[in-house]
Nucleic acid binder design. Structure first.
Lengths: 344, 344
DNA sequence: TTGAAAGCGCTACCAT
DNA sequence: ATGGTAGCGCTTTCAA
């Protein structure tokens, strides 16, 4: 490695002291304009870029924040939500000279260890908390570690700073739409047990049904996966009681459910209308195209990143609500033309 | 923040000097067993975790490596390949106490800037080079920056260390299979222009056709996206000359192509047999399920990470070939039963 | 406004 | 085998 340009070189070249150079470069007050200009010129000419290592040690900052993605290791592959979230986060971090440290773990205890290490090693200045569970142990952990954290879509009255995208209204719109089309009971395939967003979607579905004065349909336990959707379909098929409309906790589940029902010879939406949640690209690739609740993970990500950096900078922050999710009606709901079954 | 436990505290508690404590903790030679044990005990009792900041500055290491993903910001969303790659990388890094710094940029020049910053700020000890282009400027850049780098699937005779997964044989198998089923010309929808893997797939397709003694079918320019696949389908439809078999540069393209052809009333694989490349989950969700070349991004990722850390540790390395990609025959090829067209 | 100097926490060299 | 000490590159008092 070539000897790198340090602040000493810059100071020398500008003919000032190291401390003045530092102050000038960091836009700190107490430096004359001429000195500042001279220092900047020197830095430019030398191609000076401050070493994060030195900066980190002396300023007690890592200039990085962490995201621990906890799920099967193929999440990023099967669930596109994270990609968009990360993209949103990254767009903000980049502008502020921060980096994203990404960890992927399979189990919750491993995730907790990672947070512990990130904090203990002072590798990051803060973290994002995603996929919150009920009574999530990470809350206490963050408080104990005194590690700045921003939660993504936690429940109401969450004790840590949070970014939320509300979807209750969109879910209400969906159920209302189902009702308008003549459905008298709307089933729901839930997400994995224990997650806050699983319960939020269940209760939004419940209240909407109640408000609209229809039966709350059957509730099936899913797990946010394609196979979970298929399993739910099997269950419905075996029960002999097929709902006319089904709202799934996410798109992947809805697609699994839909395909399994189609394999059983059912027509979508003729025999059964189906809707998902998320708005992932896959929903447009299947036939019929999937009606869904459009979430905006990119916006959530950038809001969360902005908030986290503000906290790190010790600026006051308030919880952020990004624009609510919206109903995107596509082909898997809507036409109530009952077509004849096309085969087993 | 509570005052953190430093190596000074550990040394004090163990009743040894700081340098001995450091040596003991880092498994350096020149420390008696008893001292080592005493230091370790002290560290455990105090819950000591070395500060990465101090360590980084003095040891001139970042204990982090970088990955710059360059594509539309929704890549991670639309192209699941990266998720698995990152998972593979992460699994190795975690074991060695390294972190992954992830950057996402939209344009090539922005990517180059990021590498420049990562290097100049000494934020990482090395980087992964992905999605190589012909005469990729990053080669010269890495050499100039003297930044350790491992390339993922570059061409042959690449000047930097590399990890490769060969697919020529699998592509040959695919074409052979097409031929065995009676196809006499195999079209190809390529990837985006300028990429090494785009050309590799084109030439593998060419040689396979030549070796098998059949016509090389029409070559259409794609771009690795779903919409690119649809566009290719439009082109074929408009040309009036529909191939009986089409090999696409990736699964997303194949799915776009397939769905557009189905919309035109064609039966897959009855009228047209289609195959993709990658083995993403989406291929199993569409109907018919997509025949594909199964790649193993996770394995590629972990091999690349192992290699990069070895380089960082100044160990000698040789290029790695992970197990070659394989043909996964599913429903979109195979049955040569020509069914009557069912529509336009 | 400027500069000297004291760390930040650790590694590594060099005596002992 | 052990311990003192000089940095690593930067920020941040505190004097001048």
């Amino acid at each position: 490695m070539r000897a790198r340009v340090t602040i000493v070189d810059v100071a020398q070249r500008a003919g000032v002291s190291i401390s003045s150079a530092s102050a000038a470069l960091n836009d700190n007050p107490g430096v004359s304009d001429s000195t500042r200009a001279r220092v900047r010129d020197a830095a430019d000419q030398l191609g000076y870029v401050p070493s994060l290592r030195g900066r980190s040690l002396s300023s007690r900052r890592a200039f990085a924040v962490g995201l621990v993605v906890q799920r099967q290791t193929d999440v990023l592959e099967s669930d596109p939500f994270f990609g968009a979230l990360i993209g949103g986060i990254e767009s903000v971090l980049a502008d502020r000279g921060y980096a994203l440290v990404l960890h992927m773990v399979e189990r919750a205890d491993a995730a907790r260890d990672r947070y512990e290490q990130l904090a203990a090693g002072r590798r990051v200045d803060g973290v994002f908390l995603d996929e919150l569970q009920n009574d999530d142990p990470r809350i206490a952990q963050m408080q104990r570690l005194e590690l700045p954290a921003v939660a993504i879509n936690p429940g109401p009255d969450f004790p840590l700073p949070a970014v939320r995208q509300h979807a209750d209204e969109a879910i209400h719109d969906l159920i209302a739409r189902f009702v308008a089309e003549g459905h008298r009971a709307i089933a729901h395939v839930s997400g994995a047990a224990g997650f806050v967003h699983t319960e939020q979607r269940i209760s939004a579905w419940r209240s909407a049904c109640a408000e609209l004065g229809i039966d709350e349909g059957v509730l099936l336990a899913g797990d946010f996966t394609y196979d979970g959707g298929r399993a739910a379909a099997e269950q419905l098929l075996a029960s002999g009681e097929l709902p006319t409309a089904i709202f799934c906790a996410n798109d992947l589940t809805a697609v699994g459910l839909m395909i399994r029902l189609q394999e059983a010879g059912l027509s979508i939406p003729g025999d059964v209308a189906i809707a998902g949640f998320d708005g992932i690209a896959l929903g447009r690739y299947v036939r019929p195209q999937l009606t869904t609740i459009l979430s905006a993970p990119r916006e959530v990500g950038s809001a969360a990143a902005t908030m986290l950096l503000d906290i790190v900078d010790r600026r006051a922050v308030e919880d952020i609500d990004v624009a609510p999710a919206t109903l995107e009606t596509r082909e898997s709901t809507g036409s109530r033309t009952v077509r004849p079954r096309t085969g087993v």
